[in-house]
Design a protein around this nucleic acid. Structure first.
Length: 839
RNA sequence: GCGGGCGUGGCGGAAUGGUAGACGCCGGGGACUUAAAAUCCCCUGUCUUUUAAGGCGUGCGGGUUCGAGUCCCGCCGCCCGCACCA
């Protein structure tokens, strides 16, 4: 083996080419080996890879390579979430076509990913903007339509009158369009919806089975679905109308002291029709801010309508308010207010001097206990409530529901926070919704043989609005049913639809249909899904829904697509800035010289302020470009850094010193591999034991995605091997380190493997075997404690008896000194671990 | 407000209730070298102290235990998510 330094700039490219040549990462769906599907969330082709991608994909890559070494047939694919707004924005700003811009970005980013040496099956690559992919998506959408899971409904949207487009909620900032700055209007448009609410119960219950998902994500999904059960019933109003309300606390019905409706409730609108005061109040409600801070401090406000509602049991008239804290889009938009046992109602009643009756108490004796400044929402026993008094809360709920149902004035209901999924987007760069509007036949799906409905290419982005809508010919088609003149749907699908089934297409990609059920059964579910926590709700919920919906249509036999989910932390870096008047000017780490006592700008040698360590972002310029660091340190050092130190679920602070350390370790390993001595013989039992212990531990760490621990163990074994003299056991240690490091530093490993005369590629080599007999020590270190403190450590044969250990401990001079003749009351002996002497 | 997570050296972090600080980074000292780079060795929680030895130490206060970073109770602080969801 040569004495030269390992040169990544040569080796990286050489082995990347070798892997490609050998096609060793292409998955065989017909393999008899156990399967492993490792998937990282596919990227949006924004232009360049960022460091977050590097971390995400490195983790998946290590797992994929490790599984392959363990004998699995691994599916580890990559593709592009390629539809979306940035392409259209680029089209508007730079006059480039979204397709050209997108495919150009894909080419760049694919090249960058290849530079990192990821073990990806590029033969399965696709972009969601490929007509083939979105054509299959259109077919699936029609399947869902035929299954009754797609419908159209008039619904309110955020409309930007300047850009003539619909905005997502997060694109509306302070009531203005994020791009145009124009005041956003509420408009009613016909929109396409997917009936995700049909699956609300299934999706909620399914969460219980997702044992290998982070608890946090499971909770977020549960909260998002938001199931609640209660009673829906109607009040008779003094004006002759009836008012349906929903409550989760029917047990507290005798504690109701008023009724309230949302500002945009029909009742409120009716009142406003002949009351200027009511109109003013409603306007005031609508003006209220919606930010977290505003809501938290917002005062409860109400407007007494003068109408009263008749209590269903007592017949008492309850005043009806319009209240700013009642939401129109939850439940019925109206509530029965029980101030004693709901904090919001309590605040409202206190402000307007309404009665606050107690109907729940800790015990029946507490019926007269006053409230202490806040509502009591907890459990207890019902009081002051006629026939309910004395019952437990849960029993009383059932009792009231039963009576309401028997009396025909109400019924037990389940209410969900989850809404149907609006998938219409009035944009160009998305999957065209495959429907045709015919005056005679209504809404007609595009026939299978006419799919895909392709996007027209000759579009102009100079004018605002949806280019599909103003395209001169694209939308004009013959109705598939009657043949008459008809128009295409010009809305495109939400890009979340694209990412709701891409993992299926990766697993199976016949040309004549979206996927093959048998092939899906071979690969799904994804064994390990890795991505950012920012997709904890929407993407993951939609993907779960699509999988279930397709199963419902008989298209496949999987219910949960992702068996195990891992959400990795962000890559962070400190910021560098200077004040320029009122503004803060930021500098990139590459522009700054950082030493232990400060940082100066390279350009002028003057100091810059060092800010907090935060997520890398373009706006703060605290970014490093993956291509730069690969060029400077090599792919393996970059990969190693991504895995070292920080636990993968936590944030990883990028540091120049850290990456340099990784580069040094690459060279250190290279030198160690060079010391492999085929002629060496003889044993080194201690090193052999450490080697086998390390193999077992590192395998466990990678399984658990605890890469930082695996890295630490490899450092340790490396040090031990460096210190040892030549022996057969040392050769085995070196070879094992090479194999264990190969998923993490594949280029270095291949180069060394080749030089050491290894068979084939190390990428195809098996994980080293563990000799279980060598895992156990025959000599163990025993800690001796006295008064709870460590006094001495001594070595003893493994499995020594308690008596022997006790005798050994008492024989220690240090222990005797600590005991100082005190009377020994008790000796605790934990075999192979410690002796604790109590005096 | 509700829910979840986390507090360990200068820093990132290890530690089935059993030797706290593995491993890495930074820093200090030394070797090699004409010099540098590269590499190697040693030190590196804190206090008393020449050494030796010992005291104190895992956000704070209690508790359980022979023994607590780890378990329990009560605080404090930080981070994330959700939010007037009836």
């Amino acid at each position: 083996m040569s004495n030269e330094r390992f040169d990544p700039s040569v080796a990286d490219r050489r082995w990347q080419a070798a892997w490609e040549e050998a096609r060793c990462f292409e998955a065989d769906s017909n393999s008899a080996k156990p399967k492993s599907y490792v998937l990282e969330m596919f990227p949006y082709p924004s232009g360049r890879i960022h460091i977050g991608h590097v971390r995400n994909y490195t983790m998946g890559d290590v797992l994929a390579r490790f599984r392959k070494m363990q004998g699995c047939e691994v599916l580890h694919p990559m593709g592009w979430d390629a539809f979306g707004m940035p392409a259209e924005n680029a089209a508007m700003e730079k006059g480039v076509h979204p397709a050209g811009w997108t495919y150009q970005n894909i080419e760049t980013m694919k090249g960058q990913l290849k530079q990192l040496g990821f073990a990806l099956d590029w033969s399965r690559e696709f972009a969601t903007c490929d007509p083939e992919y979105y054509g299959h998506e259109q077919a699936l959408f029609i399947d869902l339509f035929n299954a009754g899971l797609v419908y159209r409904k008039e619904s309110e949207v955020n409309w930007d009158p300047v850009d003539m487009t619909v905005l997502a909620n997060e694109q509306v900032i302070d009531g203005k369009g994020w791009r145009s700055g124009a005041e956003v209007e509420k408009r009613k448009l016909n929109q396409w919806f997917l009936k995700i609410t049909d699956f609300a119960d299934e999706l909620l219950e399914g969460v219980q089975g997702l044992e290998h998902w982070p608890q946090k994500v499971r909770l977020m999904q549960e909260n998002w679905i938001g199931k609640s059960t209660g009673l829906e019933f109607a009040f008779d109003l003094s004006n002759g109308e009836t008012l349906p309300v929903y409550t989760t606390r029917p047990d507290t019905i005798f504690g109701a002291s008023f009724v309230a409706v949302a500002a945009d409730h029909p009742i409120a609108q009716g009142v406003a029709a002949d009351s200027a005061e009511a109109r003013d109040f409603i306007a005031l409600c609508k003006k209220g801010g919606t930010t977290a801070a505003e809501l938290e401090t917002a005062e409860k406000l109400g407007f007494d309508t003068g109408i009263t509602a008749k209590h269903p049991f007592t017949g008492e008239p309850l005043p009806l308010f319009i209240a700013n804290f009642v939401l129109m889009d939850y439940g019925t938009g109206a509530i029965m207010a029980v101030p004693g046992h709901d904090q919001r109602d309590f605040e409202f009643a206190s402000k307007y001097g309404l009665p606050i009756p107690r109907v729940v108490a800790a015990s029946t004796e507490g019926a007269g206990k006053p409230f202490e400044g806040e509502a009591e929402a907890g459990d207890g026993v019902i009081v002051n409530s006629d026939f309910l008094s004395g019952q437990e809360v849960e029993d009383a709920k059932r009792d009231v529901i039963t009576r309401a149902e028997a009396g025909g004035w109400g019924k037990g209901t389940t209410v969900w926070r989850l809404r149907d999924w609006g998938v219409s987007r009035q944009r160009y760069w998305g999957t065209p919704i495959p429907f045709i509007h015919c005056e005679a036949c209504g809404v007609v799906p595009v026939p299978q043989d006419q799919l895909p409905v392709k996007l027209p290419e000759d579009v102009d982005f100079k004018q605002p609005g949806n280019p599909l809508l103003r395209h001169p010919t694209w939308k004009n088609v013959a109705c598939p049913k009657c043949g008459g003149a008809a128009e295409r749907e010009t809305d495109t699908l939400d890009t979340f639809v694209n990412s709701s089934w891409y993992f299926l297409r990766f697993a199976s990609q016949p040309s004549d249909k979206p996927f093959d059920a048998a092939e899906i059964a071979k690969w799904l579910p994804v064994d390990q899904y890795i991505g950012g926590v920012e997709h904890a709700i929407l993407h993951l919920l939609y993907a779960r829904f699509w999988t279930r919906a397709l199963a419902h249509c008989g298209k496949l036999d999987v219910k949960e697509p992702f068996a195990s989910l891992f959400t990795q932390g962000m890559v962070t870096h400190e910021t560098y800035s200077r004040k320029a008047g009122a503004r803060e000017v930021y500098y990139m780490p590459a522009e700054v010289d950082r030493s232990s006592d400060g940082a100066v700008l390279k350009a002028d040698g003057q100091p810059v302020e060092i800010g907090k360590v935060i997520k890398m972002s373009k706006s703060k310029k605290n970014v490093v470009d993956p291509e730069d660091i690969i060029r400077d340190h090599g792919a393996d050092a970059v990969r190693w850094f991504m895995l070292s130190d920080s636990p993968p679920e936590r944030d990883l602070p990028w540091s120049e010193a850290g990456i340099e350390g990784c580069g040094r370790f690459v060279q250190r390993l290279w030198r160690l591999f060079g010391q492999f001595d085929a002629a060496a013989s003889g044993a080194n039992k201690e090193l052999a034991r450490k080697t086998h212990q390390t193999i077992a531990a590192v395998a466990g760490d990678i399984e658990a995605l605890a890469f930082n621990k695996a890295v630490a163990r490899l450092y340790e074994l490396t040090s031990a091997a460096e210190k040892a003299g030549p022996s057969a056991d040392r050769n085995h240690a070196i070879r094992s380190i090479l194999l264990m490091a190969s998923p993490m530093m594949p280029h270095l490993a291949e180069q060394a493997w080749a030089e050491l005369g290894g068979e084939g590629l190390v990428a195809g080599a098996p994980w080293p075997e563990v000799d279980a007999a060598l895992l156990v020590e025959d000599e163990v270190t025993i800690a001796v404690q006295h008064k709870g403190k460590l006094r001495d450590t001594l070595s003893a044969p493994k499995g020594a008896s308690k008596e022997d250990l006790e005798a050994l401990a008492l024989a220690s001079e240090k222990v005797q000194r600590s005991l100082d003749g005190a009377e020994i009351r008790k000796v605790i002996v934990v075999p192979d671990r410690l002796v604790n002497i109590v005096t």
